[in-house]
Design a protein around this nucleic acid. Structure first.
Lengths: 154, 154
DNA sequence: ACCAAATTGACAGTACACTGTCAAAAACTA
DNA sequence: TAGTTTTTGACAGTGTACTGTCAATTTGGT
């Protein structure tokens, strides 16, 4: 009755697991960032801005999101004083997102808590299994994504 | 400078990969379901209703979503005639979501296309690697989820 | 039978992703 | 230089998830 092959079936299981884990991870991230008025989305944007002033559209490309989505997040960050838009000598419209002291402090706090969290959760697996999982997901991403992209600093 | 252990670091890589693959999978699902006016969210709800008439709140628990979220999706499905709310002999308020002929046909179509898609993408991995990925994600989910839950029919 | 607690749907509001469109600015091409 | 294309931000609208709250209903305890 079901034309799913064993591989297709296990792949489907994996897909459903990705959906659920995605939601739980966002939830965990929101808890992690709550004390400094951040959120998973804001934190990820700050994590890119951290490397230096950068326009919204660039961040969107790096993160694989639309610039409209990042713009919305960035406006929220600016409204809360975690970043400021500074002039871009190379482009009149595309202002640069720049981390403020408040943003720097919030990010420091979250990164510290994130490290503890990731170390703890990572420790319940073998390095080999984690790497296999990463590799499988990466391959799936490359199969689905028309625009593969570079990784930032190791 | 970075207090991340090798395991914590690889775990973090995995988290970011989950975020991105999640988005791409939803996108792929939306493409898959587009010809029959469905979407990833609607399809997943239909996939539960398929097993028999069931109240919204039950579907929410099965899927690990809030009932408000499923309610919204279900109302859309009802508005488009893919399900109907039928009376529940055991509960006056909690009406039963029931698949209509139109819903059945849409689901058949999507399941057929899904099987082809999953078989094809699954075939680019070994069964062992897929199972490891599933197992790692499942373990992460159990670490994060206060309410673990049963799997439906194999 | 009664009362308290849990479940359910309805409604309101929020966060974050998407698409589509427009005009300004920049980059490219001939 | 002039004209076209691409990039960018702004704005509007949608889908799907969340929280919180309320009243109706059901369930469970005494």
């Amino acid at each position: 009755m079901n034309p799913l092959s064993p591989l297709g079936d296990t792949f489907t299981e994996l897909v459903l697991e990705v959906f659920r884990v995605n939601r739980l991870l966002l939830e965990a991230g929101d808890q992690l960032t709550k004390p400094v008025a951040l959120s998973s989305a804001r934190w990820q944007v700050l994590g890119v801005v951290e490397h230096g002033p950068i326009p919204v559209a660039h961040v969107a490309r790096i993160m694989g999101l639309t610039r409209q989505s990042v713009q919305q997040t960035a406006d929220g960050l600016a409204a809360d004083g975690l970043i400021v838009y500074s002039d871009n000598p190379h482009h009149r419209r595309a202002k640069l997102m720049t981390l403020t002291t408040k943003g720097r402090e919030a990010l420091d706090y979250v990164q510290e808590r994130h490290a503890e969290w990731a170390n703890q959760l990572g420790a319940t697996h073998t390095l080999e299994d984690l790497q296999t999982a990463v590799q499988v997901l990466r391959q799936i991403r490359e199969s689905l994504d028309p625009s593969p992209e570079p990784e930032a600093d190791a």
